[in-house]
């Protein structure tokens, strides 16, 4: 598989993480998102209509949504189906958190981009989404699990992890969010885990 990506993008990091966690080989094709803004140019938009990284290619298939690509990698590479849904209920819950990763959580990525690259963006909903994810983890802990959806890590955890792990870049303190800090630590202990720049040691 070919991953069109940027080394500093949290959405690209989640796909690199999935490959690493599954021990899969893939080809990295760097895109000059910054400072060249190549992701907004026609050549890249031919691959990704909204001009968003990452893009995953496998043969004739092109996937230009991070969550969809995450699901595809997990379904292709995980023979035990440990990372994807094993029941109808799990599928609904995983889908919910994939939607959070592709929706409200983008506010965190936007805050990080503004801090790093000076891009203007809104902070609306920034702490809401952090609180909601923290609440979820704490609730899961009460039920004996340390993961977002199940008693094992799934693609929902992989989808949400990068933006939360890069909170310092976004100027967000997790001091008040004990659940999130424990969850980050558990995630970073998974076999195959690899950090990226900006992910604080946990």
């Amino acid at each position: 598989m070919i991953l069109y990506e940027h080394v500093l993008s949290s959405d690209c990091y989640k796909l690199r993480l999935m490959f690493d966690l599954l021990g899969m080989d893939y080809e990295r094709r760097p895109v000059d998102m910054y400072p060249g803004h190549a992701d907004q140019k026609p050549a890249f938009r031919a691959l990704s209509p909204f001009g968003r990284l990452p893009v995953l290619q496998d043969g004739n298939l092109t996937i230009w949504d991070a969550q969809a690509a995450l699901l595809y990698i997990a379904e292709r590479g995980d023979a035990s189906s440990s990372w994807t849904a094993r029941s109808v209920e799990e599928r609904a819950n995983i889908q919910t958190w994939l939607q959070v990763a592709g929706g409200p959580l983008r506010a965190v990525a936007a805050a990080r981009a503004r801090n790093l690259f000076g891009d203007a963006s809104s902070e609306d909903g920034l702490l809401d989404v952090i609180t909601i994810i923290d609440d979820r983890i704490v609730e899961q802990e009460i039920h004996g699990s340390e993961w977002l959806v199940s008693d094992r890590p799934t693609i929902a955890d992989v989808a949400v992890f990068p933006d939360i792990a890069l909170h310092e870049d976004a100027g967000i303190s997790l001091d008040a969010y004990c659940g999130l800090r424990r969850w980050l630590g558990a995630f970073a202990s998974l076999p195959g885990f690899a950090p990226m720049p900006g992910v604080a040691s946990m």
Partner: peptide
């Protein structure tokens, strides 16, 4: 990548 490792 190197500079962002320094930044944090």
């Amino acid at each position: 990548e190197i500079f962002l490792q320094d930044r944090i």
